[in-house]
Design a protein around this nucleic acid. Structure first.
Lengths: 344, 344
DNA sequence: AGCGAAACTTGAATCGATTCAAGTACGGAA
DNA sequence: TTCCGTACTTGAATCGATTCAAGTTTCGCT
């Protein structure tokens, strides 16, 4: 392998001059520069090796996004909300001339992180320990929706408030009979919870999903409804039968509170198969406003949790390299055509 | 910043032993290992710095995907076909415990590449020069749909054959009156080409798109039709007016040959607005089979150009680190509900 | 020619680890 | 007690560049 010093020797200059030829060409007299470049070409030298310069300069010019632990890269990319988040991060990387690294949530069982990056953005952290290795490296870290202490930057979104707004919207339209489509905490078969069934305390999958449930409960309580009295289905995100189970379990529902766009779309499909017109016979709200929500028929009313904006904000915090900051965003309801007053 | 040698000194062992404690724990007597670990904790040492070990070992454990030049990271991620490709690459990264790097096509105007990766996958290369810096670094490189010489691995897909199959499918169904929806070579306003209008030689945007045009032409020629006699619109991928322009320009068409799923979906929307039923009144085929094609109404018949598979294959070639290989895949037609025989 | 300033070069130190040949300590066998 | 092999440890060399104080050349002026 040709090294800088080989080029320098071949060109009859010192290594320092050779280095300048590549990094500060203006410091080198043109004739000499030419000589060094010729030597480099002759030897097939492809410019300073990144490892060496990295060691000296310490800049990687890259930001990593770490999906929730256990998610593979492929699983992450398959998730449209994750992709939307990446888009936000990516746009800020573009502005800073940095690369975007998608790492696996599964790597580094050792707890070590091997990403060659200047900073990391953690999605859905569940224990401080996940962040610890990066912190020890004094690497800028941003965690999403998790409080890792005042020393570590974080970006939060008020999921509970967003969910409350969504439910209020349906209540304002006059709905009083609902169905809830939620997630399982662990992989498995869909579970149906008829009205009044005992439910796990937070009644949903991830911490974020639990906040949605609580937000729905808040709004329902405001008009004297008990969320426990509402039929609910918990299912994996791509469970094809889930929508059907819910419509069976909540036959008189005029509106469905769901926790993701994918579920919302599945509900639209199932409603259509059953000859129900959305929103005339059934209103549907979903969570997370991604492009797919605008393209389905009818376009879904959703809670926009500012996924892309949050990605961009997190990336900005990384590049700022300032003291830790804690940002909090409030989601907003986007009303489209999947919600309307119930038939009278 | 704490260094390995500081830890070693604090623990009263040599640097070599300290290194082994982290990398080959079994070589170190447990008692000593414990001492080193305690020292590391006490000093807040976060494990061997990546720069140093990188310099020695040379492995980055990451693969970069380079979008077409000029594309930013955000633009790339916004492209669903690109995302699909990433998914393929990502799944192989998962299997190899590597990270996935999305770099910008815009970086490195200098021609240098600064990606900290073991290998690079280039999408839509147009000049050898784009690949040269990576090659000089003796870094494994795979280029997609471009012949960069026998020394550089490549993965090709027979776009022309795929397009020919798509057009044959419509011809077999009995269609004889078409419209073509294509791309502009450069950004700009949509252009309408009435039948028989002079067209640029390859009549489309990128080299790959040109292949689609030629493939359509091949099939049409087989039944004696001249593609130049077919109304065509060239537009940017997200030009909202394009679908309308084409349907205006080809009022008697019974089938549309389009060059992307996004265009195909736009056509479905425009047809619906005009009260045309797809596929009864109008058949539509699109190119590239991504998930969106299965979710629209009706699901689109498309040419599956094996995007994900190609991504996975390219990544495999990177990790193999063997001699250059040249793979060629044949796309296949996926018939869904957007194509049918024309009304008689 | 002589001088000083400007412009360019040099070479050694440094970045933070890994590696491996050579050395030491220890325990068991003779 | 001596010797030997095993099991750890050590320390120096190495990876490939960047940096910068110190040294050298060049050039314009008088």
């Amino acid at each position: 392998m040709v090294r800088l010093i080989d080029v320098a020797r071949a060109a009859g200059v010192s290594q320092g001059t050779a280095s300048n030829t590549f990094n500060n060409p203006t410091l080198v007299r043109p004739a000499l520069r030419e000589k060094v470049e010729a030597a480099a070409r002759a030897l097939g030298y492809g410019g300073p090796d990144l490892r060496g310069s990295l060691l000296r300069t310490g800049k990687f010019n890259a930001v990593a996004v770490r999906p929730p632990s256990q998610w593979t890269i492929a699983e992450s990319l398959r998730n449209p909300v994750f992709s939307e988040f990446l888009l936000g991060v990516g746009s800020v990387c573009d502005a800073n001339g940095a690369d975007l690294v998608v790492s696996s949530g599964r790597l580094d069982a050792s707890g070590g992180t091997k990403a060659l990056v200047d900073g990391m953005i953690f999605l859905r952290v569940e224990h401080m320990a996940e962040v610890e290795p990066a912190r020890l490296r004094r690497m800028p870290v941003v965690v999403m929706d998790f409080d890792a202490g005042s020393e570590i930057s974080s970006v939060h979104v008020d999921t509970r408030i967003g969910a409350r707004e969504a439910a209020r919207h349906l209540l304002d339209l006059g709905h009083r009979r609902f169905g809830i489509m939620s997630f399982l905490r662990d992989p498995g078969a869909a579970r149906v919870f008829p009205p009044g069934t005992a439910r796990p305390p937070a009644a949903a999958g991830t911490v974020v999903d639990q906040q949605k449930y609580l937000g729905y409960a808040d709004a329902l309580a405001e008009v004297g409804l008990d969320i426990a009295a509402i039929p609910m289905v918990q299912a994996e995100v791509n469970d094809a039968r889930a929508a059907g189970l819910l419509l069976d379990a909540a036959p008189q529902a005029t509106a469905i509170l769901s926790m993701s766009v994918m579920q919302g779309i599945a509900l639209l499909g199932e409603a259509r198969r059953r000859g129900l017109s959305v929103p005339r016979d059934l209103s549907v709200v979903a969570y997370n406003d991604i492009e797919a929500a605008t393209r389905c028929d009818p376009p879904l009313s959703t809670v926009d949790s500012l996924t892309r904006e949050r990605g961009a904000l997190a990336a900005k915090l990384i590049f700022e390299r300032g003291p830790a900051r804690h940002e909090r965003l409030t989601p907003r309801l986007v009303v489209r055509a999947s919600t309307a007053s119930p038939r009278t």
